[in-house]
Simulated scan of single mutants.
Amino acid sequence: MADQAWPRSVHALGAALLHLALERAWVSRDLDSRTLTLTSRGRRDLRVRVGLDLPPS
C-alpha cells in the first residue's frame, strides 16, 4: 500500500510547487508547449530563499 501512495504524494508535491512557482512569477509558461522558463525574479528568489545560485540561461 505504501508503494502506491508514494507516486500520488510526489505528484501532489510537484503540482503544489508548480502552482507556487507560477503564482510567484518564478516561472512562465509557453502556451504552445509544456515548456517552463525560469524568470529573473525566480532566479533571484531561489538564490535568496533557498541558496540555489543558477547560472543565467
Rank of each mutant, 00 (worst) to 15 (best):
M1R: 05
A2W: 03
A2S: 13
A2G: 04
A5F: 01
A5R: 03
P7M: 12
P7V: 02
P7F: 00
P7G: 03
R8L: 14
S9W: 03
V10F: 05
A12D: 13
A12S: 12
L13P: 02
A15N: 11
A16G: 09
L17Q: 13
L17K: 06
L17N: 03
L17G: 04
H19F: 06
H19E: 14
H19P: 04
L20T: 12
A21T: 04
A21R: 03
R24F: 01
R24L: 12
W26T: 05
W26P: 01
W26H: 07
V27G: 07
R29D: 01
R29P: 04
D30T: 10
D32C: 03
D32W: 00
S33F: 09
R34H: 04
T35P: 00
L38W: 02
T39C: 02
T39D: 06
T39I: 07
R41G: 03
G42E: 06
G42L: 12
R44P: 00
R44I: 05
R47Y: 04
R47H: 03
V48M: 06
V48N: 10
R49Q: 09
R49C: 02
R49I: 06
R49K: 12
G51N: 07
G51M: 09
G51H: 03
L52I: 11
P55F: 02
P56L: 06
S57G: 11
